[in-house]
Write a protein that binds this DNA or RNA. Sequence first.
DNA 1: ATGGTAGCCGCGCTA
Length: 255
Amino acid sequence: MKLAAWNVNSLKVRLPQLLEWLAAQQADVVCLQETKLEDHNFPQQEIEAAGYQVVFSGQKTYNGVALLARETPVDVVYGNPHFPDPQKRLLAATVNGMRVVCAYIPNGQSVGSEKYAYKLAWLTALEAWVGEQLAASPQLALAGDFNIAPDDRDVHNPAAWAGQILCSEPEREAFQRLLGLGLKDSFRLFEQPEKSFSWWDYRMLGFQKNQGLRIDHILLSAPLAERCVAAGIERDMRKRERPSDHAPVTALIAV
DNA sequence: ATGGTAGCCGCGCTA
């Protein structure tokens, strides 16, 4: 069972790439972020024609999440019941007995800003709700764009990024609290190459210089982590013409 | 040196 998460940065622009990638990768469950589409514009037919069922929650211009699955997603929840939020950033569904939470965690803009406070509050509410979901569904995956580099290993230039947005201690502590619920960072269950990143700024030749951060994650509850046999980042997607600034991240789970 | 690039019903904002 292959699980993937990808911030597409506009599904309208990236749909052809998504369809090619689905055909090539044969992922079973895919969590998308930054679809930037209102629901009535969502390309449901194209995705169903590719062999996936899909649930989505989007808005114009910003945010937007979707969950694609080979099997029917059931018990769908849109948004965090503990955190009313006009921004469409969260979606959960059960696929084949596995609870999948697709999250687009706020970026936070800069440490100390209003958006930063929103990010930390959003994370606190996420922790509370995922804790409940986990109690009800022991087989749980939390996947998406976390906008947090958990560790200095996940940063191309830790000195320059120290204390900055995506790397600050409060953000990293929030990430650790999610792990504290009993989740594992699937990527770190395995030996990985140095300088493995999932996002590179479009500016300043960020990708060409591998000046990136690892901010996209798939966290797995213990029963899933025990069956996780591989995890990786599909870096080649960032080499394509007109790429998203994020590469997909994947986890392979034995069934 | 506070830049730069991409996406969007934008005429700046978010990332």
